[in-house]
Write a protein that binds this DNA or RNA. Sequence first.
DNA 1: TGCCAAAGTTACGTAAAAGTCAATTTTCGG
DNA 2: CCGAAAATTGACTTTTACGTAACTTTGGCA
Lengths: 128, 128
Amino acid sequence: MREFYTITELTREFGISTRTLRFYEDEGLISPVRRGRTRLFRPADRHLVKQILRGKRLGFSIAEIRDIVQMYRDPPGEVGQLKQIINKIEEKREELRQKRRDIEETIAELNASEEGCVERLAELGVKG
Amino acid sequence: MREFYTITELTREFGISTRTLRFYEDEGLISPVRRGRTRLFRPADRHLVKQILRGKRLGFSIAEIRDIVQMYRDPPGEVGQLKQIINKIEEKREELRQKRRDIEETIAELNASEEGCVERLAELGVKG
DNA sequence: TGCCAAAGTTACGTAAAAGTCAATTTTCGG
DNA sequence: CCGAAAATTGACTTTTACGTAACTTTGGCA
């Protein structure tokens, strides 16, 4: 595994702009190290970008993604904080399960629609 | 099943504002009938709202949701159009499957994080 | 050491999806 | 029939998530 990636390497890999990566840094989602002013992205930063984009595909806002990636971090040493994180994790999991139900329902309705189309095609004498 | 719902009934049921419903109408997602100027929402409109909100939870834009709900409509009579709709349905289904994979991965990482927290709690002598 | 492509900063612009506010209308129960 | 509650329209504002200049800095190498 490589030690560092440049900003343009990541933009090409993930199909996003440098502006986007800098924006995520401003928002505190990633913290690449610097050599002078130039950002150097470590594998951990790259993985974070993956997680961020996954969150985006699921419709989470930047603020929500920030919350989520904070859950991925090393657990703190204080009992109260640990319990709070566990609660937040369960919340997010429930939200994700809701999204999963939404997906199943949407796919089911799309399946029904497609069947309707296929039947209609059959009526018109088109072989499937 | 009721014949009509008022706009505020739907805002209460779904936890959205009247502005939002009117916005969806402006965007061509719903077309409630009118008695005078007042909107009357039929069960079909109400169901559309459900589908719209489902799409929102999954991170689809209004434009994408418009595309999706058009797929739910009665199939047209022309072969070319039918085939095109079937293609679009398959595209959306693939997108949804990707989202589902994203969800599974996110849940898996949350599970791992939670375990880390639980272990940490155990180290601190907290009984689970 | 001189150059240029890549990286950086700063600041303003914008599209989407509503929120908010104001000014009318409409409806409807008593 | 009347007045409060509900609904409508229209305009303006806000927030999010970047896009787009415009200009400067930097680092690698011929």
